[in-house]
Amino acid sequence: MNNPVIWFELYVDDMPRARAFYERMLGVTLEKLNSPDSLAGIELWAFPMAMDRGGAGGALVKMAGVRPGGGGTRVYFACTDCAVEAQRAVEAGGTLFRAKMSISEYGHIALVHDIEGNLVGLHSMQ
């Protein structure tokens, strides 16, 4: 059985600012996705993903009527050492919510608010 999550979306108001934040924090380049005609007016920028591998792909999304911010869902990004990405998040204009902490045999996490107000997690085994 595969992992149940296959896609995530982080909603933003200021796409250039949000893209710059995530690209700097994670050390990646996001890729513009074409919106189907049925979704006119939606801007999507995808995180790097391999369609033939496990795990979830996802995108930053700017869409009228949908606001960024804290909610009942949290996305965790895989890292080598989550303290490094947490520091990059702060340097990119985000805020540290919880510094790197152990989650026992499951590794470590850190929590940051992105530049749009979304609370996201960073996970690493070291």
Score class of each variant (00 low, 15 high):
3 N>T: 04
5 V>M: 14
5 V>H: 11
5 V>Y: 10
7 W>S: 02
7 W>T: 06
9 E>Q: 13
9 E>M: 00
9 E>I: 06
12 V>M: 06
14 D>A: 03
14 D>K: 04
14 D>S: 13
15 M>A: 00
15 M>W: 08
21 F>A: 04
21 F>Y: 01
21 F>I: 02
25 M>D: 01
29 T>S: 14
30 L>Q: 10
30 L>M: 14
35 S>I: 06
37 D>P: 15
38 S>K: 11
43 E>W: 01
44 L>A: 07
46 A>K: 03
47 F>W: 00
49 M>V: 11
52 D>C: 04
53 R>E: 12
54 G>P: 15
56 A>M: 04
58 G>E: 01
59 A>F: 07
60 L>I: 09
62 K>Q: 10
62 K>C: 05
64 A>D: 14
64 A>V: 08
65 G>I: 15
66 V>K: 12
70 G>Y: 13
71 G>Y: 07
72 G>H: 11
75 V>D: 04
75 V>Y: 06
76 Y>M: 14
76 Y>V: 06
77 F>L: 09
79 C>H: 03
80 T>L: 01
81 D>Q: 01
82 C>P: 09
87 Q>R: 15
89 A>F: 06
89 A>S: 08
90 V>P: 08
93 G>W: 03
93 G>C: 05
93 G>D: 01
94 G>F: 10
98 R>F: 10
99 A>V: 06
101 M>H: 05
102 S>I: 02
105 E>W: 11
113 H>D: 13
113 H>S: 06
113 H>Q: 10
114 D>Y: 08
115 I>L: 05
117 G>A: 11
118 N>F: 03
119 L>D: 11
120 V>F: 00
122 L>H: 13
126 Q>A: 09
